[in-house]
């Protein structure tokens, strides 16, 4: 094997390495990142769907309506989703699912309870207005 053949093969190896590091490695890294993002997006969609079917907005509206601000505070309590949803799922999916499920259940409960709380408060204000009105009429 002469020197030029060695040079040529070394150059060839360098070109191959450059191609791999500059083209294929970034592409595979991007593909990997895209898979993780897709996993997380899917997890969030699944978690939101599960949370919507697990939490009853009507119940939390009634709790907010009857319990007022305290009802809204109860709404901050956490739920227990089934563990089967996380079987065979990646760490990224588990992380995203738990975050999204927790956020979604809290959001549904809080929104419903705060609406109930406001409706309840409105009813109370009306009742007090009637009470004040009737007492001022009595004093006059």
């Amino acid at each position: 094997m002469n020197l030029s053949t060695v040079r040529k093969s070394t150059l060839g190896a360098i070109v191959v390495m450059l191609c791999v590091s500059m083209v294929f490695a970034p592409v595979s890294a991007e593909l990997f990142a895209a898979t993780i993002t897709q996993d997380a997006t899917q997890a969030c969609a699944d978690a939101n769907q599960q949370a919507t079917s697990d939490v009853s907005g009507g119940t939390w509206f009634a709790i907010g309506c009857l319990g007022g601000l305290i009802g809204w505070l109860i709404a901050q309590m956490e739920s227990n989703p089934p563990a089967t949803q996380l079987l065979g799922k990646s760490p990224e999916y588990v992380a995203s699912y738990t975050d999204c499920y927790r956020a979604k259940t809290k959001s549904i409960k809080s929104k419903s309870a705060i609406t109930g709380c406001l409706v309840g408060a409105g009813v109370q204000v009306v009742l007090y207005a009637i009470l004040i009105g009737s007492s001022s009429n009595t004093t006059n």
Partner: peptide, 16 residues
Amino acid sequence: SEKAFELTSQNNVLLP
């Protein structure tokens, strides 16, 4: 991947 989670819930988890 040597990753681990510990999820704590308020009540006992319904087993699969």
